[in-house]
């Protein structure tokens, strides 16, 4: 089952990995530019140079916040092909006629999608790690925490978009998924101010800590979305 999904996705995955590597690796030259400004050769005051020297961590934080958007676009394309495309094209009937329960089918589909998105996220992070190491000679603090959170983000986003795709099984799912993620994004912005949820910030990356609570929230959201997908698909009528 998972192999089928990957054979089906080979072009999408290839392009996704390429974009991830270029995007992640693309930060290395950016690091170099920042670093070249730091020595004060361009007439910067010592205070400005010191402020700028902490930029790598901010860049890292910015990348970790940008990655979900890249992953969102990828997950939308994935769900459009893997779930909506199969339902509208009719090939989902082939899956449903397998001598397996529906939960098994959708769980494997979600697992394959998570692996695919995880691979793309890993590629982006690997490129970022390599770029960062080359630029700084060492990895910025918080890199491990940021990377873990990036992957957890990617998996949660995929699971939520997958759930919306399974709920609707039509292209309208893409619009709804974007709206849902937009709503989550607003909640994530508001929640820390209300002291409800502490989403990872540049501060935690600078401190070099692993944001365990954020990781747990993301993974729990992903697991909840997958559970809901299974429950919805169990009762789904397909024409």
């Amino acid at each position: 089952m998972i192999r089928r999904e990957f054979v089906n996705a080979r072009w999408r995955l290839g392009v996704g990995l390429l974009v991830a590597l270029v995007t992640g690796g693309g930060f290395a030259p950016l690091f170099f530019v920042v670093r070249s400004l730091v020595p004060g050769a361009h007439g910067l005051s010592p205070a400005a140079a010191a402020a700028l020297s902490s930029k790598p961590a901010y860049l890292l934080s910015w990348f970790v916040k940008t990655m979900p958007q890249l992953i969102t676009v990828y997950a939308l394309i994935l769900v459009l092909g893997s779930v909506v495309g199969e339902a509208t094209g009719g090939s989902i009937t082939w899956l449903l006629m397998l001598p397996r329960p529906r939960w098994w089918i959708i769980l494997h589909k979600q697992l394959a999608a998570s692996l695919e998105v995880g691979l793309v996220a890993l590629a982006a992070l690997a490129a970022l790690w390599t770029g960062g190491s080359v630029a700084f000679g060492r990895l910025p603090p918080g890199m491990i925490g940021a990377s873990l959170l990036g992957i957890a983000d990617a998996l949660a986003i995929e699971a939520v978009i997958g759930f919306v795709g399974i709920w609707f099984l039509t292209p309208i799912a893409v619009v709804v998924a974007v709206a849902v993620l937009f709503a989550f994004s607003i909640i994530a912005q508001i929640a820390p101010a209300l002291d409800v949820l502490h989403v990872a910030s540049a501060r935690s990356f600078l401190a070099g800590t692993i944001p365990w609570s954020d990781l747990a929230v993301m993974l729990a959201a992903g697991a909840l979305a997958v559970t809901c997908s299974v429950l919805v698909f169990q009762r789904k009528e397909l024409w």
């Binding site: 089906n8 199969e86 009719g90 090939s91 989902i92 006629m97 001598p99």
Partner: peptide
């Protein structure tokens, strides 16, 4: 009991085939 589908061959009106294979 989905395992009973092991004994079943089904061809829908619109063939349920993945077009990329």
């Amino acid at each position: 009991k989905p395992e009973v589908r092991e004994r079943l061959g089904y061809v829908p009106e619109r063939p349920a085939l993945d077009r990329r294979f």
